[in-house]
Design a protein around this nucleic acid. Structure first.
Lengths: 112, 112
DNA sequence: GTATAATATAGACAAGTGCGAATATACTCA
DNA sequence: TGAGTATATTCGCACTTGTCTATATTATAC
């Protein structure tokens, strides 16, 4: 996969302030859905929806326990995410092909 | 600001595969819009739209130079982003208040 | 089994997003 | 000034997203 579709799921998952807060809560340890729900003024189905998106991205892992569902962070995925951000935001280890500069850069140079 | 609205802009900006690719390209250095455009099969207005979202988040900085616009990464913001992800995904330095566990955790414990 | 509790799914709706075509703006050069 | 070039904005469209209400599923307890 080269179009970063998988990684974009990480970012999509964290692109909502409520979901950021949920991750923040989970960083202290595993929590069950009802505990998370209490901290927000969201309906239960809406929270369930948010949890599904977080789980789909792989950043959060669900654990069924009787009639309860407990959620926890997938630390590995967060490491992956940070590595990925480092990769795309620094030239480190890249070929850094000189993109064709015919349109403008060449002109800029020729002006000097 | 406590609702992470600002940080969610970082994630929104990177939640599109095309924008991830653009950041990847910019990691090798400043590029002008026309050079980026050549690398994608997008219309010029659509690219302009993506660049606006990237700039709005603060991750990318535009620089006008005559009729050209050059874009570069804002390394500081990427550091901020990584720090933020570390913050929300680890308990480090947090109070880690024990959330009210009345609904389920208490039951789980009482079952043991 | 039936009632209750925790969570998930379905459906609807407003708001937001990605996209291109058309147009506008801003700059350069003759 | 006027033509040409680089980029931005506007607008319309299909699709996605965040939210709710209503309902279904799954597990527990009597």
């Amino acid at each position: 996969m080269n179009d970063h579709a998988e990684q974009s799921l990480f970012f999509k998952a964290l692109s909502d302030p409520n979901r950021i807060m949920i991750v923040d809560m989970l960083s202290c340890g595993e929590l069950c859905a009802c505990t998370i729900l209490e901290a927000f003024s969201l309906s239960q189905p809406t929270l369930s929806h948010h949890m599904k998106i977080l789980c789909r991205s792989g950043l959060v892992i669900p654990r069924r326990d009787g009639k309860w569902t407990h959620y926890s962070l997938n630390r590995e995925k967060f490491s992956e995410l940070i590595s990925f951000i480092n990769y795309i935001s620094t030239g480190a280890g890249k070929e850094c092909i000189h993109f064709d500069t015919k349109c403008c850069d060449a002109n800029v140079l020729s002006q000097k």
